[in-house]
Each structure stands twice: as C-alpha cells, then as structure tokens.
Amino acid sequence: MEGGYVDGGVVDGDCPDGDFIRLEGVEKVFEVRTRTGLLRRERRRVRAVDSISFTVARGEMVGYIGPNGAGKSTTIKMLTGILTPSGGRLRVAGIDPSRERTRLAQRIGVVFGQRTTLWWDLPLIDSYRLMHRMYRIPDRRYRENLDRCVELLELESLLDVPVRQLSLGQRMRGDIVAALLHDPQVLYLDEPTIGLDVVSKARVRDFLRELNAERGTTVLLTTHDLQDIEQLCSRVMVIDRGRLMYDGPLAGLHEVGDSERTLVVDLEREMPPIEAPPARVVRVEGPRQWLAFPASESAAPLVAHIAATCPLVDLSVREPDIEAVIARMLHRLEGAADPAPEGAVS
C-alpha cells in the first residue's frame, strides 16, 4: 500500500477544502488519423478539452453538462486518472490523478452509466466482497456501508443474482453501491440515470442527495437528464467544444439563456387571450391557455393577477426544457466569441 490513506474521512494536509478538486488550464489533445486515400493519411489534432479551469469545494454537488462530444467524459477520465492531460495542472484531494492513479483510487468512486465496474458473470455480492479486500476496507466499515447502501437502494434480494441478469436500473444501483463501499471523498457519476425508469431515477437521486447531506461526499455528475441537475446540483458547469462556457447556479443558466417558463391556465370557459405583461399568450386551445414568461421572474404576481381578473379553474407552471436553454445559451455565447476550429496539421 502506498500510504496516506487512513480512513475515508481523512484528507492530506496540503488540500484546503475550498479547492478539493482543482483544474488550472487543463488540456487534452488527441491526434486523430483519418484515411483520405489508399495510403494517404491525414493527422488532425483535436482539442477535446481546451484550457479548462475550475475548482470544486468539498461537499459540493456539481453538474457537468454539455452536448455530445463536448469533452465531459474526457474531463472525468482525466479527473479519475484514466487519461493523462496534455497540459495544465490538475489536483483531486491534493493528488495528481495521472501520476498517482492507485492512491487516488482509494479516495474516489466512479460510476460509468454505460458500462459496469462489476464482474459481469458473478453474483453481485462477489463483486462487493472483492472490493472489500481490494480496497482494504476495515471489516466493520464494509459491513456498515454495505448494509446501509443495500437497504437504501433496495438491493437485498439481488445480492446473489449474477450481474448479467440484473435489469439496467438494478445494475446501476449495484454499481453505485460498489463505488461507495470504500467511503470515497469524491464520487464521479457519468450519466448515472441513463436508461432508467422514473422510479429508479427517483431512488438514485434520493440516495445521492442523502449521501451528500450525511457524508459530505463531493459529487460531480455528467448527465443528459436535466432533472438530475435540477434536483441535485446547486451548481452547473456547461462545457462545449472543450471549453467551459458557464459556471454558476442553475437559475443563472436560465438568465444567460433568456429562457422562459410556461404557465398553463385552465379557465371556466373560452376567453380571449389573457393580458398579463410581461407574460404573453403563446397558445390557446378552448378554455386552456399557455402563457410564456421569463424564467427569472417569479410566477406569484402573475398567478395573482390572473386569479383576480379571470374565472380560474386550475393552473400549472412548466419549467423550461434545459436542453433548449443550453442550446440557446451556447448560441448566444458563440455569437460573441467563436473559438477558432483546429486546422489540419499534416
């Protein structure tokens, strides 16, 4: 054992809680070879991650989002020590991931939504027993963590089932348990709710929230499901074409993206479109009307105004589709400063 690791809760002295994860100008450049003729090949340099800097404090839950191929997974791979950065400085819990991969492994938990870290042909419990030994988890700690996770994620009846026979949702929960048995200080989740049904998603989210609140585990998650972010993360980072485009609270993302919420109003009878600035009616269907208003505004005065002036039966507020918000935001930011694309070098 390489030393340093005493217990899940202990951090090396050289890492202040404020920047538990720290990236300074981190880059990752891939060389892609494409065949352009029978023997001719063109080498192109692709900047998957382009000078990204941010810090994450201990106990934060951060969403890391962006379009496909934006560089999310590449960043996660550098943070876990799988990939070596091409440039910049990177520290997780005071450790340089690419240099001290195995030491870092004791402190991090990783869940890849698309592939399992469990042993496919063996019962779930076999994987956990092996983790117990491989991570040198003290017996009591292992049993406590296992019991707690298994109870919260409702896996008791599945422990003796081979992993390949589990449903996607069950397997995902199984993977989350495996990532947490050794009390990691940081948990990376790469698309943790991909392909899950509504119930499984809710269960996973509840569990993560509780983990963060109770253990103060730092969580960094990438996702396409923006409900994940809404329900879990106080902070989001948006990455596009390898660059960090936004870093801040989710609400701020709405502002940057000029997004709108929708108020759906059911009236007693058909009526002409309601006048209630700054909202505007975008659709009328019999007694039902849709009003769009800026996401940064409160819905309360609007609702009060409508209730006072119209025969109201029911109403609901719809949150904006954040995919659209991100797309809009990226569009606006790119209009301001379009990053020059990397050209062919050979």
Binding site: K77, T80, G81, I82, I108, V110, Q114, R115, T117
Partner: peptide
C-alpha cells in the same frame, strides 16, 4: 475496444 479497460483503471490495483 469496448472501453471496459477504463473500469480497471479506477481501481487501486495494477
């Protein structure tokens, strides 16, 4: 090819 090597790289063993 299928990327499962990554899962070995996040464990504390060679």
């Amino acid at each position: 090819r299928d990327g499962t090597l990554d899962t070995l790289l996040v464990r504390p063993a060679p």
